[in-house]
């Protein structure tokens, strides 16, 4: 059976996920709780940025250069999921966001690996991201009363952004239900080891289910891309 590459535009949501999460992780530089995490968070951010760039490169014919795609689109045309645009919050929020996202992203890339040249490298990168997030989830869930409470709060707060992840993306021929099943099993197992309760609330917002993939974002996203794009946009046509 020949693996058919997905149509280029179908990878735009994945590229935007990677860019936006990379940007959020980049905001940690100089603020991390321990020097080793300065290294680790930057490392993950760099992997994600590399993934975004590789995917944008495949969209050149449709959307232009990587910088045109990243810097000259308006908020409503970004197709990332809302989870990745959520502000860093405290380290617990960042770790839970990493856990939820990398547990989604790694098997997704694994399914894409035969069809998308980038995916093979990305699978091993995201496996590390996942390992990092799982270790910290267990460490903080189990650590002290305070760390446990912070993790539980973060999990509860971010839970409503996890349903969207499994809304099928048009053109991406993936086994979405299987992805969701794997994701839920893995999160349940990690939360169990961490002594955290699985949140009970809705896994999507009232009118925003699957919305990121349609260009509907949460309020913190606007300021984020304004900051990201302003310098590039201030010098139209300049090269850097």
């Amino acid at each position: 059976m020949t693996a058919t590459a997905p149509p280029a535009l179908a990878t735009l949501p994945l590229a935007d996920d990677a860019l936006v999460l990379s940007h959020r992780l980049g905001e940690w530089a100089g603020h991390a709780p321990v020097l080793e995490e300065e290294m680790a968070l930057a490392n993950i951010a760099l992997d994600l940025l590399g993934q975004a760039r590789a995917l944008y490169a495949g969209l050149r014919d449709e959307l232009g250069t990587e910088d045109e795609i990243a810097y000259l689109r308006e908020e409503r045309t970004f197709l990332n999921c809302q989870l990745v645009e959520q502000p860093n919050g405290d380290f617990a929020h960042t770790i839970v966001r990493q856990l939820f996202f990398s547990t989604y992203q790694q098997p997704l890339y694994a399914q894409l690996a035969p069809k998308l040249p980038l995916a093979e490298k990305a699978v091993s990168e995201t496996a590390y991201h996942r390992d990092h997030a799982e270790q910290w989830t267990v460490r903080l869930g189990d650590g002290t009363e305070e760390s446990h409470a912070r993790m539980q709060r973060a999990a509860n707060a971010l839970w409503r952004f996890t349903g969207e992840l499994f809304q099928p993306v048009e053109g991406l021929d993936l086994r979405w239900q299987e992805l969701e099943g794997e994701w839920a099993a893995s999160i349940t197992e990690v939360f169990g080891r961490a002594g955290l309760d699985l949140p009970e609330g809705q896994r999507s917002g009232a009118w925003t289910a699957g919305a990121g993939r349609q260009g509907l974002h949460t309020e913190p996203f606007g300021p984020m891309i304004a900051e990201m794009q302003h310098l590039h946009r201030s010098h139209p046509g300049a090269t850097w």
Partner: peptide, 26 residues
Amino acid sequence: WITRAPSLRRKAILMAKVQDEAGHGL
């Protein structure tokens, strides 16, 4: 300047550089 780097290439270079500095600290 990481969040405002004007191109994705420069953003990657700058993030890697700041990461190197953390490594030097270590």
